[in-house]
Design a protein around this nucleic acid. Structure first.
Length: 222
DNA sequence: CCAGACGTTGTT
DNA sequence: GTCTGG
DNA sequence: CCAGACGTTGTT
DNA sequence: GTCTGG
């Protein structure tokens, strides 16, 4: 799964890295502990191009009667095209969710140990994302997103059975192509990243409280 | 037909 | 135990 | 995802 | 909105 991640790149760097328009006034303070129900930067289609936007993590479908209720933060890649909750978003509202790391909790023995995962040497990447817009009478529409998950690769598996989909350069382009993807194209995007490209280390349970933030979150456990 | 769900993860 | 908030 | 709350009445 | 279960 993926229920907490790192996104420290400034908005202008994200716009440059992902070829997205940067809306005036969009601000992002680097975060080492992005949690569900909070805003985070997302890259989505903007006419023929792309734009950066801040959306709330936890997908609220357009047909939801109220803002409460189910807001899945993840969407399983397996069987995704058949899920009423995600089908329309998979066809028309795919997104890149920029990050530079994520956490998984190892539930072995008493207590849970958080681990930090990133690309070898660090650097920005994109999770495969889906987004939705739900109109809200008398207010601005609620825009939300979810992160697609798949089975864990060899780096993540010792810690957790699932991991977020990290798109490589080719998959980024395909995932953001206009129009629906064929089942084969979707499957090509939604695979576990090659384990040789990742590194991981255990971190202090200091990160476990979503109220905490800062570089300390990713310091190796002492 | 209508009513009710629509999700993931982990644990038992 | 279960729900809400971040 | 995890952490933290989980309630009412009346008074200030 | 759309699918599943009764």
């Amino acid at each position: 799964m993926c229920g907490r991640y790192v996104q420290t790149s400034p908005a202008d760097a994200l716009a440059a890295r992902f070829g997205a328009r940067l809306p005036e006034g969009l601000a992002w303070v680097p975060r080492w502990n992005v949690a569900p129900s909070t805003p985070a930067p997302v890259v989505r289609a903007d006419g023929p191009g792309r734009e950066l936007a801040l959306l709330t993590w936890g997908l609220l479908p357009s047909w939801a009667k109220d803002a409460a209720g189910l807001r899945p933060i993840n969407a399983r890649a397996e069987g995704l095209a058949g899920k009423p909750m995600f089908r329309d978003a998979l066809r028309r509202r795919r997104a890149l969710v920029p990050a530079d790391g994520f956490y998984e909790w190892q539930a072995s023995g008493p207590g849970k140990v958080p681990w930090h995962f990133r690309l070898k040497g660090g650097g920005a990447f994109a999770f495969a994302g889906l987004w939705e817009r739900r109109e809200a009478p008398g207010g601005p529409p609620l825009e939300t997103f979810a992160i697609v998950t798949t089975e864990a690769n060899d780096v993540v598996r010792p810690v957790h059975a699932r991991m977020p989909v990290i798109l490589d350069a080719e998959a980024e382009a395909l995932w953001m192509r206009e129009g629906a993807l064929s089942p084969d194209e979707a499957a090509r995007c939604l695979r576990p990243l090659d384990a040789s490209r990742m590194e991981a280390w255990a971190v202090s349970s200091w990160v476990s409280s979503p109220a905490r933030d800062g570089p300390r979150c990713v310091e190796p456990a002492g």
